[in-house]
Every structure is written in C-alpha cells, then in structure tokens.
Design a binder for these strands. Structure first.
Lengths: 193, 193
DNA sequence: CAATAACATACATGCAGAATGTTTGTAAAT
DNA sequence: ATTTACAAACATTCTGCATGTATGTTATTG
C-alpha cells in the first residue's frame, strides 16, 4: 500500500533537501553531482527533476531554509530585548551562534552568492537575518542612540562584517575575539555626548 | 617564420588571460566553457591546457592579476599620506575606485571565494589589498589614534565592509553614500578623549 | 665555425568518461 | 479517466588527457 501523494511529495522533498544539503556542504555546488545526491537520498534522478526544475532550484530551496533558520534564531534571541542597542549586540551574537551549524557558513556566504548571484542572496538575506539588523539600526537611530547614517548601507556594511566573522569562526577562529571587534564597531556608531 | 618560444608563450598566456577574464566576467566561472575562452582568444584548447593545468588554474592566474592591480592602486594612492588615519580613508577610497573596473568585483568577491575557497582568497587578499588595511590599522593603533583592538579581525571586518561596498557600487549604488558610511565606521574606532 | 643530430617546447586534434536536463514509460492516487 | 509521482533511457556537452606534429633550442661533430 502506498501513502497519499501529498505525504509522498513531502517526504521526498525533505529527503532531497537533506541529501542535497549534505552533498553541497561536503563537495561544494559545482562538484556536487545529482547522481550523488539522489544516491544518498536512496531515489533516482527522476524524483529530483520531478520536484525541482534543476540542480540550482534544489540549491536555492536549501539556501532559503538555512536563511530562515538563521532569521528565526535571531528573532528568538532579540524578542526579549528592550534596549535597541543591546538588541543589536544580542542579535549579532545569535547570528554568529546560528551560523556555527555545520556547513551553513559555506552555504549562505560562499556558494550561495556565487550560484544565485549577490542580488538574489541580498533579497533572501533581507527577508531573513539582514532585515533584523537594518530594522534594529533604524530603531536605534530614531531614538538617538546611534549616529544618523544611511540605514541600508550601514546595515549592509555591518552585516558584511558579521558574515566575515561567521566564516572565520567556521574556519576555527575564536568567537570571543570576533564578538569584541563587532561590538566595538557597533559602539563606534553610538552617539556620544 | 616564427617568433622565439619565450615570446610565443608570453603572447599566448596574455591572450588566454584576457579571453578568460572576458568570459569569466560575462558568464561566471561555472558557465564559462574552455571552448568559449579559446575561441575568443582564437586558439585551440590544446594551447590552454599546455599553459595551465586546468580551468581553475587559468582562473586563479586571472584572480591574482586582478588582486595585484588593486593593491598597486591602493599603494599608489596612500604613498603620499603622512597621517595614518587619513591614509586609511584614502586607501579605502582608492580601493573602491579600483574595484570599479568592469567585472572586477564579481571576479574578486563572488566567484573567487567560491572557486578557490575563502582561505585561498584570504591569502591572496592579504598579499594584496587587505594587507595595506591591516598595516594601516596597526600603525594608527600604535600611535594611539585608534582604539586598541585585535588588528587582524578588525581589518577583516572593515575589509568585508569595503568589499560589500564595492559590490553594491558595481551594482549601481552611489559611491558617496558608501564612502560616508565606511568613513563613519573608521571614525567610530578613533580614540576619543 | 658551419652543419646537423638530439631534444625540448608549443600547440592541434581526437577520444573517454561523466554530468546535466529532457523525454518517454509505468504504476498508483484522485 | 486523468493526473501525479517517479523510474529509466537518451541526447548533448564539457572536461581533461593522450597522441601527434611542427618549430625552436642546444649539443655535437667535422
């Protein structure tokens, strides 16, 4: 007996996403082959090309899931923060923590931009983690806690710093040193009297 | 009649580097095919594989040339600066200017890290543009002009911001806004009394 | 100091293996 | 009966290598 089509599709897509994530992380997008992915998932390429337009579409779905997980972690960490400046620092630490998931830094920061393009990744990021940073900056600037600066560009510049930190940490760098540096960058933007 | 082997090799490698740059920029590394590259150069794939181990080796040679050009531009711009802090701002602007060369941002900031790996790109960058930033920070910190922070990580964080700025500018963003933001980040690290 | 033999270099051409995306076929669900 | 979910075979294309050839370069000999 066979399950409903809906259940089958859901299970198959989940299996393909999991297997794809594994292979993409270990091999990189270019060297990851669809035969390897479907073999790991225990199915055939027919299933893959039924559910996803092509290899890139599978990759994009994985990227969006990863970005969503990061955004959720940041939101959860900053929900309780009242002070906008403290929320920025806390959100940054939550970001770095979330990015320690195995292979996540490579997926979101190296292969993602190269495969999907920087613009597409920026859009995904804005709808996920980067949006929180931008909103936090706007809030802090509105309350006079931070220097008044172009919010979008400032958020991107800081976001780039956090990204670099996440990559370094994924490569074995010390987390605390990077938190020190990023907090210093944030504090540097604070309004002083 | 034929030229000397040395002259032939030099001309052939220059032609392959130029054609490869063109195709890599317009197509991206993955979609760039070696037949397209050698067709543009007006030679055969035999020549390509004689001078370069594989497609990646050609790409790496192009990347190193681009990174070297950026480093040269930064050094030229900052050579006359006495004040370390002014040198940092000037170097940043020179970097952004140098990165406006067509396709350079994509090569150095998107495809480069994905193809060669972030570590290899970091090494190339350290020997090129990023080294200047780190040295400038150390100098400024030593003179008490900047807050004392881990120089390597601070340089990387700022470098990441400049990279993001270069990408945005390549995508049509306003240069002056980004200079404002990056100068503000630098100023934020300045020692205040 | 020619002339030439011996070798290296630069490149072209053809081939094998593999990967992608498409098409066709089949069984089960709706 | 029709559509969905998947399998399996197919056509195209690319990469890297292996072989072949012509020219440059160096050593040797008369």
């Amino acid at each position: 007996m066979r399950r409903s089509n809906e259940a089958r599709s859901g299970a198959m897509q989940a299996a393909l996403l999991a297997a794809g994530r594994e292979i993409f992380v270990s091999e990189g997008f270019a060297a990851a082959t669809t035969p390897a992915i479907v073999a790991l998932a225990g199915v055939t390429r027919g299933a893959l090309y039924h559910h996803f337009a092509d290899k890139t579409a599978l990759f994009e779905a994985i990227i969006k899931a990863e970005a969503g997980a990061v955004a959720t972690a940041i939101d959860a960490a900053t929900a309780a923060c009242d002070d906008p400046l403290e929320a920025l620092r806390t959100g940054g630490r939550a970001f770095l923590q979330a990015m320690t998931a195995p292979g996540r830094a490579r997926l979101l920061l190296v292969d993602g931009p190269a495969v999907l393009g920087p613009e597409a990744m920026a859009a995904i990021d804005a709808a996920s983690g980067g949006g929180a940073l931008r909103d936090g900056l706007i809030e802090a600037m509105a309350r006079g806690l931070l220097r008044s600066l172009p919010a979008d560009e400032t958020a991107q510049a800081l976001s780039a710093g956090y990204d670099r930190a996440a990559l370094a940490i994924a490569g074995g760098a010390d987390v605390d040193v990077w938190i020190t540096v990023m907090d210093a960058l944030l504090e540097g933007l604070a309004n002083r009297r």
